[in-house]
Design a protein around this nucleic acid. Structure first.
Lengths: 347, 347
DNA sequence: TTGAAAGCGGTACCAA
DNA sequence: TTGGTACCGCTTTCAA
C-alpha cells in the first residue's frame, strides 16, 4: 500500500500572481477567470484554468474578502445550548443543510447555559465577521446585541424569542404543546396530573406551565399547585421530584414532563417504583429510542431540523437584502402517542 | 420593555486608521496596543484603548491574516458522519472544548457517508485555510489528501485510521470491543450468537467482526457464518435482519449488534417478538436512554468526547510545530453491563 | 478583450 | 517609545 507522509512540509501556496505568470496573462485576467466573470476569450480562459490546476492554486478568501465591497466570509455563527444534545444537534443539522447550498460554513459553539459565554461568543463571532448569527439564547435579555449588531449582521433566534431587541425568531408554540400533552392526559380521565418543569425564568418553561394550566381550565378543571415542581435542571432532579410527587397522600395518576431530559428522569422514577404501566407520562421534546422504552414514551415533538432550516432561511434572506420587519415564525408541535400517555386513570 | 430594532442599518465598521486618528497616534501604535506588543507608554496605551472602545473597533481578521507570516485563521475544520447523531456530536463537543481554550472555532460539516462529499469538503476547508482538520472518514482511501495537504495543514483522523496517507489518528480498539461484547455473551453460556454488522468495506466493521470471531476462537468455539448478517445501514434493516435470524431453525440465543443504530433495530425486533427477556443483546456504542430500555441495554462504550479532545490535542500540537512521526492513539472501549447482555443461555 | 495602478485593513521592517 | 513605508493577495476602476 502506497503511503505518503505528510509531516512538516509546509510549502507555500501559489498566488494569483504565480498563475498569471505561468499563463502569461495579467493578474486581472486570472481574477476574471477564477470568478467566472465575462470578457475573457475561451483560449485564454483555458490557459488560465490549466495553470490553476498545475499550481493547485486556491483563491485566498482573506484577500478577496478584504477588498471586495459587501464582503462575505461565507460563515454563519451558531450558538446552541450544547452541540452534543439531540435538540441542539438537530437544529444545527437543519441549519447546515441550508447553509451548504450556498457554500456557507457553520461555526458552531455550545453555551452550556452561560449568559456570559453567550455574550463573549457573539462578540467573537461578530469580530470574525460572520455573515449571520443563529442563536439559541442562554441569557434572559439580549439588549447587548443592539451594540453588537449595529453593523447589520442578521440574527435569528431559535427556541426562544429575544428580549430587549427586535429580530427574527423561530420557535414552537410551547403553550400549545403543553396544552396538547396535558389535555391528552385529562381526556383519559386523569384528575391529578403532576408537572415537572425546568427553570421558571426561561420563557419556554413559563409557556409550558401556562399550557399545562390552560388545558385544565379549558375543561373546567383546576391545575393543582402542589403537583407542580419547577426549577429542575437534570434528569436526576426529575427522578427525585417524581419520587416526591408519588409519595404524596393523594399522588398524581399522570405526569407531564416539560423537557426531554426531565421526561427521562420521570420515566426512570416510574420504572424504579414499578409504576411504568400504572402512571401515565407525556414528555415535551422527542428523542431517539423514546419508542423503545417500556412503555414507549408519548411525547410532544418539535421538528428541530425544521427549526434550523427555517432560521437559516430567515438569516440568508436578510443577508440577501430583505429588510422587512422582524418576523417571528411559530411552528406547531405535534403529539406522538406511543403508549405511556395512553394509560387511563384508575377508576 | 425597551426594544430596539436592528433591521437594515449597516453602518461601516471603524478601522485601525480611525482609531489612530481619534487617539492622535500612528497606525503602528494602534497595532501595537491591539496586539499587546511592548513598547508603548501607558498613557498612549490608555488613549488608544479608549478610542477603541468609543469606536467599537474590531480588528479585521482577514486583513491581519493576510499580512502576518504563518497566519492562522483560528478555525479547525471537522468532518463527521452526521452532526446530529450522538456519536459525531460527542466527538465535536470534545473537539470544541479544547479548541475554545485557544480561541479557535470549529467549522463542522456532515458527510452522510459520502466519499465525494468528503473530498469536496476537505477541498473547501483547505481553501478556507483552516488551521487544522479533524476527519471521520467516509471514503475508503484518503490518497487525495496527499495533494490537499502539501502545504502542511495538520490532519487527524477519528473513528477510523487513514488509508493511503500517513497522519495522526485517534480510534478505539474495535477488535477488543467486539471481543468484550461477544465474550460476555459466550461466558453466559450462549453457543449460538448472532451478529448484525454494518458495511464490510468499513474497517471498523471488519475489526468488530474479527473481534466477534476471536472471542469464539479464544474459547475453543466457532463463530457461525449463518448467524452473521452484514452490510446493514439502518435501524430498520437491523430489525429485519434480527427477525430473519430468529426465524432460523436453530436460532441464536444472543445477539451482538456492532453499532448503536443497529442495536436499536435489534432491540426493536426482540420487543416485537416478545423476546426481550429471552434473547441476550449487546450493542457497540452507547447512547442516551440505553439504560431505560426494557431490559436496559448492555453496551460496549467508547468515550466520544475523549476521542474529540484527543484529536484536538494532536492537531494543535502539530499547529504548534510538533513534527514527530504520525501517531495513532488507540483508546479502549469498556463494557457496560445493564441487563440485556446478562440474560443467560436457556439450559 | 485585456491590463496597469490604486487600495482594502492590517503587519513587518527599519528609521527616527 | 514612536512613526513611515512597503506590501500581504486580491478586487476595483479605468484606460488601452
Amino acid at each position: 500500500m502506497a503511503v505518503t507522509s505528510l509531516s512538516g512540509n509546509g510549502r507555500a501556496r501559489a498566488t494569483m500572481r504565480d498563475v498569471a505568470a505561468l499563463a502569461g496573462v495579467s493578474l486581472k485576467t486570472v481574477s476574471r477567470v477564477v470568478n467566472d466573470e465575462p470578457g475573457v476569450s475561451p483560449a485564454v480562459r483555458d490557459r488560465v484554468r490549466s495553470a490553476v490546476r498545475r499550481l493547485d492554486y486556491r483563491p485566498n478568501l482573506a484577500a478577496s474578502t478584504l477588498r471586495r465591497t459587501g464582503a462575505r466570509t461565507g460563515l454563519v455563527g451558531a450558538l446552541v445550548e450544547d452541540i452534543s444534545n439531540p435538540y441542539s444537534a438537530g437544529v444545527l443539522r437543519g441549519l447546515e443543510d441550508v447553509a451548504r447550498e450556498r457554500g456557507t460554513g457553520v461555526l458552531a459553539a455550545s453555551l452550556d447555559g452561560g449568559a456570559d459565554r453567550e455574550r463573549a461568543l457573539v462578540h467573537d463571532l461578530v469580530t470574525r465577521r460572520v455573515d449571520a448569527l443563529v442563536v439559541m439564547p442562554a441569557s434572559e435579555r439580549q439588549d447587548y446585541l443592539v451594540g453588537e449588531l449595529r453593523t447589520g449582521t442578521p440574527v435569528c433566534f431559535v427556541d426562544r424569542p429575544p428580549r430587549g431587541v427586535e429580530c427574527d425568531a423561530v420557535t414552537v408554540d410551547n403553550v400549545l404543546g403543553a396544552r396538547l400533552a396535558t389535555g391528552h392526559l385529562l381526556d383519559r380521565g386523569h384528575r391529578r396530573v403532576g408537572a415537572v418543569l425546568f427553570q421558571p425564568w426561561i420563557s419556554t418553561a413559563r409557556d409550558r406551565l401556562a399550557g399545562f394550566v390552560a388545558a385544565h381550565t379549558e375543561r373546567g378543571l383546576h391545575a393543582q399547585g402542589r403537583l407542580v415542581v419547577d426549577d429542575l435542571t437534570t434528569a436526576e432532579q426529575a427522578t427525585e421530584a417524581t419520587h416526591r410527587l408519588l409519595a404524596l397522600d393523594d399522588p398524581p395518576t399522570a405526569i407531564f414532563a416539560s423537557r426531554n431530559i426531565l421526561a427521562a428522569g420521570a420515566a426512570r422514577a416510574l420504572r424504579d417504583l414499578g409504576l411504568g404501566h400504572e402512571v401515565a407520562l407525556v414528555g415535551f421534546d422527542d428523542f431517539p429510542l423514546a419508542d423503545l422504552l417500556d412503555p414507549p414514551l408519548t411525547v410532544v415533538r418539535q421538528d428541530m431540523e425544521r427549526i434550523g432550516r427555517t432560521a437559516a432561511a430567515r438569516v440568508f434572506a436578510r443577508v440577501d437584502g430583505d429588510t422587512s420587519p422582524p418576523q417571528h415564525v411559530v411552528l406547531e408541535p405535534v403529539l406522538v402517542p406511543r403508549g405511556s400517555g395512553e394509560i387511563s386513570a384508575p377508576s
